[in-house]
Simulated scan of single mutants.
Amino acid sequence: MTPPLYSESSETSLLEINAVTLLRGTCKVFEALTLHLSEPRIGLIGDNGAGKSSLFRMICGLDKPESGTVRVRGFAAHDINTKRPGMVGMMFQNPDDQIIFPTVEEELALSLSPSGLPRRQAIAKARVFLDSRGLGPWAQRTMGSLSQGQRQHVCWLALMIASPELLLLDEPFASLDLPGQALLGMDIARASQQVIVSTHLLRHVRDFERVIWLDKGCVRADGSGQTVCAAYESDVAARLARQALSFNDGPPHGAPSIH
């Protein structure tokens, strides 16, 4: 296991996960997990089932650990939604798990509710925001008229207009075409907030200052994006090579490529 390359000092950490154990049913997702996260851009990688989405759900207060603490800017994560609504924003893997209202402008207006803005003013602000992005015609479009990628983009726009202090993006590039991925990448680079991105598309986090590789609920590696992504790719290639050997009962003709 690669040791963490970052200091665990809580004095500078914006997000603190201390000795957390999380169960889902009878399955232990995390055991004594500790992470102190202060970098402005952090990537989260690993196989399906590694615990990436579960980590996000704990941070935004949707799941409460059996033991240990999760604190965001000094607040207990499970109290954030009542004590500091709007502090943490999460973009789910499936936009249909996030979207509530039938039209784009109403969905964006919902994101402004923690500010106490009246509904009519919130919708007006949503329209101005969409115009500023060149998406004015989207305002009254129904969600059913949008593609999966467009609905995912609406979820990102809802986070942007709300402007929470911490952004958690769970597979945000998965349904986007190449132009959409490029635009989202630029938005992430320009965002003033701390952003944590969970993704299987390593090119989007390879240049991040910090990337964490989760493996079965444990931190397998923690360091620069270039180093950790390369280590994960090498591990996947080695596993595929072993699998090929078991299938073919002999050495593969070449190392599988996972780039």
Rank of each mutant, 00 (worst) to 15 (best):
R203F: 02
Q121E: 12
A158K: 07
I17P: 00
L5S: 13
V20L: 05
G149Q: 12
E66M: 07
R57A: 09
K216I: 05
C218T: 14
A158H: 09
L166Q: 01
T34Q: 12
F101N: 13
W138H: 02
G223N: 05
E66T: 03
M1K: 00
I99E: 08
L178I: 07
E106T: 05
R120H: 13
S38W: 11
Q152R: 09
M87D: 10
G223C: 14
A126N: 08
W213Y: 03
G74I: 06
L37V: 11
M87R: 01
T227D: 15
R127T: 05
F247Y: 07
L157E: 02
T2A: 05
M160E: 09
L37I: 14
E66S: 08
D207T: 15
R24K: 12
L22T: 03
H253R: 06
S54K: 03
G49M: 08
Q148K: 00
L176K: 00
G89K: 09
V211M: 11
A191K: 07
L240M: 14
I161A: 03
T21C: 10
G144W: 07
Q98C: 08
L176E: 02
L14E: 06
A77Q: 06
G25F: 13
L146D: 06
Q193D: 02
A174E: 08
S111P: 12
S13P: 00
M160V: 04
Q243A: 11
F92D: 09
T26Y: 04
L117G: 03
R127C: 12
A244Q: 10
V72T: 03
G225E: 14
Y6C: 03
G136F: 06
A122T: 11
G134Y: 05
G217H: 07
V104Y: 12
S13Q: 02
D235Y: 14
S224P: 01
S111K: 04
T199L: 14
T69H: 08
I99A: 12
Q148T: 11
I100D: 01
F56W: 07
M143E: 12
S257H: 03
P3H: 08
L15T: 00
R210D: 08
R151M: 01
R190A: 09
L33M: 09
L214D: 02
S53H: 07
A77T: 10
H153S: 15
G180S: 04
A244K: 05
R242D: 14
N18S: 11
D249S: 02
G86E: 06
H36K: 11
R133K: 15
Q148M: 08
E16H: 01
Q193K: 04
L112F: 06
A231Q: 15
V20F: 05
K52S: 03
I17S: 02
A174T: 10
I123S: 01
M186S: 11
L178P: 01
F101S: 10
A122M: 12
I99S: 05
T227Q: 15
A231R: 11
S246H: 05
T34A: 07
P95E: 06
L44I: 15
T82C: 03
L112H: 02
A230E: 13
D235M: 15
A174R: 04
P4L: 06
T2N: 15
F75H: 10
V104W: 10
D235N: 03
V205H: 05
K125F: 02
D235L: 15
W156L: 02
Q243S: 10
R57V: 02
G49N: 13
T34W: 11
T227P: 00
S198H: 01
C218F: 12
S246T: 11
C229G: 08
V128R: 09
L135S: 03
T82W: 10
N94S: 04
G74R: 05
I188L: 00
